Amino acid sequence: MTRSVLCAVDAGKPESDAEVLRQAARLADLDDAQLDVVTVLPDFGESFVSQFFEPQHHEHAIQQAQQALEDLSKSVLGEGRSAKIRHVVATGSAYQEILKTAQSAGSDLIVIGAHRPDLKDYLLGPNAARVVRHSTVSVYVVR
């Protein structure tokens, strides 16, 4: 029995992740499980690139991503269902943050989109492939 489902989406591309969110909600509803939705922002941290951004840039990006997650949930699943979802914005490497969020949320299942792979990745995008390879829980890949 699934108690918690984590759905990983790219908040910057809601049109490509609407079906991923629909599938995650369907799977969560089968067992009346908690649905969490996560998006990951890149971390420029102390790198050379960070000096080109204003100090409050990252906080503003987090707020925008949070709003985008909530808007995506409302538009795809409706306002009532969206109110029951935990929306999480993480910062760092996408696959690592997805796995970390799944572990801290106690997720039994991760739902992720395949996202246009390069030829070298063959069937899955690089983040989806890494999540599948390194996850300790089941991963459902939406194509």
Rank of each mutant, 00 (worst) to 15 (best):
F48H: 12
Q96E: 05
R22Y: 02
L124D: 00
D17Q: 13
P55C: 06
G92Y: 05
Q34F: 14
A94N: 02
I85L: 12
V49I: 11
F44N: 10
V40C: 03
G113R: 04
A18E: 12
G78R: 06
L27V: 15
Y95A: 07
E54R: 11
H60N: 07
G78D: 08
A128L: 01
G113N: 11
H87R: 03
D31K: 15
T91D: 08
Q63R: 08
A102G: 15
H60W: 05
L69S: 03
V49D: 06
H60K: 07
G113I: 06
A102N: 03
L99Q: 05
R81T: 12
D71L: 08
S73A: 06
E97C: 09
K84T: 13
G45R: 01
Q96M: 02
I112M: 03
H60Q: 07
A25F: 00
F44Y: 12
Q66Y: 01
I110M: 13
P42Q: 05
S82A: 14
F48E: 13
H60T: 07
R86Y: 04
H87D: 01
T39W: 01
A105G: 11
H57D: 10
E79P: 02
Q51L: 05
R116A: 14
S82Q: 04
D32G: 14
S82Y: 08
V49E: 09
P126C: 07
